[in-house]
Amino acid sequence: MAQNPATPKLRRLALRIAARFGLATHLPHQRSEAAALALRAAPPAPLGDGAEVVFLIPLVGRAHVGDWAQVSAALARTLQGFRNQTDPRWRAIICGQDRPDGVDFDDRVQFLPFTDRVEGNDKWDKLDRLARHLPTLGLRTGYAMPFDADDLLRDDAVARMVSGAAPGGWLVTQGWVWDVGRDRIGAARPQSLAEPGQKALWKLCGSTAAFRIGAAGAGVSEAEAAFLAAVTGHEHRMFPYLATLAGRPLRPLPGAPAVGYLIGHGENFGARRGRVSFKRRFVDRFPAGDAGRNDLTRHFP
């Protein structure tokens, strides 16, 4: 499965307007937009008690990388960021061809085998499998968050998500971009008049959207699973648009930068797709300084 193309911005605007009047189905739309419109008819129930955050992690196959030990070590660090959370209401599902080395699997961290034969990058197929697996988890209510196997989560992020009020879900707008190879850290935050070249983290990184799922007593619906499967087939910059089209807009996660986005370490998806150079320039243009380095040291694994 190849990554699905983004909908042109003018068509996105037209679909959002048409959706308000119940006319969007009469306009051309993609599978993801059809799934969003189907979900729009079923507003999410109140979050209630027992909310969890489920991290959906696609893991590259051993045969597609040059250093499997490095991939496994990066994933172990990502998982340690989850285990360091101040709120224990989370679980992680890893989908891949090969069980990573040095990872402890338990009731919180589970492995979902992937056996399909796919030509090219299979990340999107794994995300599809992860999304469709959600209804089987027995989850009552919470958020599903696609998360790359080499990114890092701040230790209070889960607490902020499950204790806050976001009927549609959360969007991480602030974070650190860490160029590991050069050991330089940039600060990502929403664009402003003072910083017209800035970018919110969700425009740079895919580990930034937590979609609202489930309802007490009902669990995760097949419509929600189908929506997430379709959404994650796109680049992450489509996520807020599709959530809004589904009637579940993502709310900016308040507080400190919540995600550390790692680039330049050789085995991440971005490097294999040749999409790292402009992010390196971003790090140089918006250095985080001591504040970023200290925050990464204190609150990230």
Rank of each mutant, 00 (worst) to 15 (best):
A2T: 12
N4T: 13
A6L: 13
P8S: 07
R11P: 02
L13S: 13
L15R: 14
R16D: 12
R16L: 15
I17N: 08
F21Y: 10
G22Q: 03
H26C: 10
L27C: 10
L27H: 08
E33L: 04
A35I: 08
A35Y: 07
A38V: 12
L39M: 07
A42V: 04
P46T: 01
D49S: 06
A51Y: 03
E52S: 01
V53W: 04
V54E: 06
V54P: 00
F55M: 04
V60L: 09
V65E: 09
D67G: 00
D67Q: 02
W68D: 08
A74V: 07
A74P: 05
R77T: 10
R77F: 00
R77C: 05
N84L: 08
N84F: 01
T86D: 14
D87N: 15
P88D: 12
A92I: 02
I94S: 04
C95T: 03
P100E: 09
D107S: 02
V109P: 01
V109N: 01
V109T: 13
Q110F: 01
Q110C: 11
F111V: 03
L112A: 07
R117G: 07
V118L: 08
N121K: 10
D122I: 06
K123C: 10
K126F: 07
L130F: 07
A131I: 09
A131G: 13
H133G: 05
L134Y: 09
T136C: 06
R140D: 11
T141R: 00
T141W: 00
Y143Q: 02
A149P: 03
D151R: 01
V158T: 09
A159G: 15
G164I: 00
G164Q: 02
A165M: 01
G168N: 07
G169E: 08
L171G: 02
T173N: 08
Q174R: 15
W176L: 07
V177D: 06
W178Q: 06
G181F: 06
R184E: 15
R189G: 11
R189H: 13
P190L: 05
P190F: 04
P190A: 07
S192T: 15
A194W: 15
E195R: 13
E195V: 13
A200D: 08
W202P: 00
K203P: 00
K203Q: 13
K203L: 05
L204D: 04
G206Y: 04
R212C: 04
I213Q: 01
G214V: 08
G214P: 03
A216L: 06
A216S: 10
G217V: 00
G219H: 03
V220C: 02
S221L: 08
E224H: 04
A225R: 04
A226P: 12
F227H: 06
A229I: 13
H236D: 08
A243Y: 10
T244E: 15
L253Q: 04
A256T: 14
G260L: 14
Y261H: 15
Y261L: 11
I263P: 03
G266E: 11
R275M: 12
R275T: 14
R275Y: 10
V276G: 03
F278W: 12
K279S: 06
R280T: 14
F282M: 07
D284W: 00
R285M: 06
P287N: 05
A288H: 03
A288C: 10
G289A: 10
G289C: 08
D290V: 12
R293P: 10
R293C: 10
R293F: 09
N294D: 15
N294M: 02
R298T: 05
F300D: 03
F300M: 01
P301R: 00
